[in-house]
Amino acid sequence: MSERTIELEVLRYRPEQDSEPWFQTYKVSCPEEWVVLDALNYVKDELDRTLSYRWSCHMFVCGSCGMVIDGEPKLACKAFLRDYGNRIRIEPLANFPIERDLVIVMDDFMEKLESVKPYLIPKEEKSIDQGEYLQTPAQLKAYKQYSMCINCMLCYSACPQYGLAPEFIGPAALALAHRYNMDSRDVGRKAREDTVASHEGIWECSFVGACSEVCPKSVDPAGAIQQVKLTSAIDYFTSWLPGGGSR
């Protein structure tokens, strides 16, 4: 098992002592098959118990260990050391306030996620006795890609629009709105429209596309947002036609 010594430059911020963040370097002897999260766990267990970061599943499912590794938003559990040099710079996700070290404040994301009503709004509520809301495989396929989001927030870290205009609802929340809008069992598009099709919603997106490039689950939030723009624009123009409804 080959090992090499890697210097981890980790952004530290301890609110009770530091006025601003600074980099601390840890030297760690790492087996090549480790991921960055393993190296951080080694630091935490053996070198410095004060280092704070979030993680849980270690298998790209929970979405907790998002951080910026060598300038790129990544899941620390999916960033293999063999793909990096001997110095790795580790920072918290960009565009979010830092709570402590690599831990960010995610309240803004949670509020935005909630604002798009990311749940099934069926035409008629059914009791359990009435059975499932049925769906064909083709209907499932229409939205499945957008349902793979694990709320890891890498897309918010990559999105310069979110960094520059923090009121932007952002990639993951809008992609999830699209996921439910595309679901054949859902009739909530109108209920989501005021939030989703607003200036802070899809129209704030300038299609940089960085969100889709960094998404560890290939959700393609940028694509979802452009599709919603198209639907929303068609809605707007058809509303001008006779019988097109209210604007």
Binding site: P15, E16, P21, L164, E213
Partner: peptide, 30 residues
């Protein structure tokens, strides 16, 4: 314990110099 979150600002005019993909985006916008 009181909280003191630290907000890092994205530079308003030079943000796109931070990553090759942002430079590429600026090129196709320009």
């Amino acid at each position: 314990m009181s909280r003191k979150p630290y907000q890092r600002e994205l530079p308003k005019t030079t943000w796109f110099l931070r990553h090759a993909r942002y430079k590429k985006y600026m090129l196709h916008e320009i």
